[in-house]
C-alpha cells in the first residue's frame, strides 16, 4: 500500500505545491491535499487555535484537521527561510510546534527545516526529507530534479499571468494554458499574501469577482522575481521578509506602471509584518495618487461589507473613466 502524505491547502501551498508534490510522487508516495476551504474547515481551525493567532494560521489548523484522519504522515515543513538573509514570519518558524501542541491525535509530522538563510541550494533539505521514505540516494536525487523542474515550470506559468489554481491545473490535470483574457477593461493589481488572495473562501472570491466585472487582475506573482527585488531594493534597508519583499516590490512596480489602474491591498487582521509593509505601501500610494483599496480580512469579515467597498472602489476608478459604464461587481 502506498504511503499517503498530507499537504494542507494553506500558507505557502500556493507557492510550493509543485515542489513538494512532484518530489513525493516521484518517490512513489501518494499525495493528499486538504479540501478547498469551507466554513467547516475554517471553524475547525478556529476551535483548535488561540484567538490571538492570525486568520491564515488558524485556517491552516483547519486544513491540518481536514487531513488528520486521512493520511499516514503530515508534511509541515518548517519554513525558516526561502531566500538569503530573509525570513517569512515568526509564525512560520513556529508552525509545526503550534500544530503539535494544539491538535491531538495527529499522524506523524514530517517537519524538516527549510532554510536558505545562508545557502542557496535546497538539496540538503530534500535529502533529509527523502530519507524519511527511502535509503536510495539516487532516487532522492532524481525526485529532487523533477521537483525543481516542475517548480520552475509553475513559476513560468505564474509569470505568464496565470493564478496558482490555474497553473496547478495545467501542471497536474493537463488543462490547456488558455489565452489571457484580453479586452479593454481596467487593470487592478491585487497585492497580498498568497494564502489570502488565492483562497477564494477567505478572499470572498475577490479575484473572480473582479474578473467577472471585466477587470484584468494582476498579482505580485505574475512578475519575475528579479523585477520585484529590484523595486524592493529601493527601500532604505534590506527587508527581511520574503513575502513583504514581493508585496512591496510588486506594489511599487504596479504604481509606476501606466497600464495598471488601481491597487487593492489585502491583509490579515493583526498581521505583524503587514502592519509595517502595508504602511510603506500605502505611504507610497499616497505620493503617487493611484486608486487604492485596503481590505483587512478576519474571521468576522462580512461578504456584504467587502462587496460594498469593492463596488465603491471600482466606481471611483470608473469616475476616472477606466471602467466601461454599467458593469456591476
Amino acid at each position: 500500500m502506498t504511503l499517503k502524505v498530507g499537504i494542507p491547502r494553506a500558507l505557502l501551498y500556493y507557492y510550493y505545491l509543485p515542489l513538494w508534490r512532484t518530489f513525493f510522487e516521484a518517490l512513489g508516495l501518494e499525495v493528499v491535499i486538504s479540501r478547498p476551504t469551507t466554513k467547516t474547515i475554517l471553524e475547525a481551525g478556529l476551535q483548535n487555535s488561540g484567538d490571538d493567532v492570525c486568520l491564515p494560521v488558524r485556517l491552516a489548523f483547519g486544513h491540518v484537521l481536514d487531513l488528520k484522519d486521512r493520511v499516514d504522515v503530515l508534511f509541515l515543513p518548517r519554513l525558516v527561510s526561502i531566500a538569503r538573509r530573509e525570513y517569512i514570519c515568526p509564525k512560520f518558524l513556529g508552525f509545526p510546534d503550534m500544530v503539535r501542541h494544539g491538535i491531538s491525535g495527529l499522524p506523524p509530522l514530517i517537519d524538516p527545516n527549510f532554510n536558505l538563510y545562508r545557502k542557496d541550494s535546497p538539496y540538503p533539505f530534500f535529502v533529509a526529507l527523502g530519507r524519511n521514505f527511502t535509503g536510495n540516494r539516487l532516487a532522492i536525487y532524481l525526485a529532487y530534479r523533477r521537483a525543481m523542474h516542475a517548480q520552475a515550470r509553475y513559476v513560468q506559468l505564474l509569470e505568464k499571468g496565470l493564478f496558482p489554481e490555474q497553473a496547478l491545473a495545467v501542471l497536474y490535470r493537463g488543462v490547456a494554458e488558455g489565452q489571457e483574457p484580453g479586452g479593454g477593461g481596467p487593470a487592478v493589481a491585487v497585492i497580498g499574501h498568497p494564502y489570502n488572495i488565492y483562497d477564494p473562501y477567505i478572499s470572498m472570491n475577490l479575484l473572480s469577482r473582479l474578473a467577472r466585472s471585466g477587470v484584468r487582475v494582476r498579482s505580485a506573482d505574475n512578475l519575475p522575481e528579479t523585477l520585484v527585488r529590484e523595486q524592493a531594493a529601493r527601500l532604505p534597508k534590506h527587508l527581511f521578509w520574503s513575502l513583504g519583499q514581493r508585496m512591496i516590490g510588486a506594489a511599487w512596480h504596479y504604481l509606476q506602471s501606466p497600464d495598471v489602474d488601481g491597487i487593492i491591498h489585502v491583509a490579515s487582521f493583526a498581521c505583524g509584518p503587514d502592519s509595517l509593509t502595508g504602511e510603506l505601501i500605502s505611504r507610497e500610494v499616497r505620493r503617487r495618487g493611484k486608486p487604492f483599496l485596503n481590505l483587512t480580512l478576519d474571521e468576522h469579515s462580512a461578504e456584504a461589507g467587502v462587496v460594498t467597498r469593492l463596488e465603491a472602489f471600482l466606481d471611483m476608478m470608473e469616475r476616472r473613466q477606466f471602467l466601461p459604464a454599467g458593469e456591476s461587481v
Binding site: K91, L93, A270
Partner: peptide
C-alpha cells in the same frame, strides 16, 4: 499582534 510571543503563547 506580537508574532514571536503569539507562537510562544500557543
Amino acid at each position: 499582534t506580537c508574532m514571536p510571543e503569539i507562537v510562544a503563547h500557543s
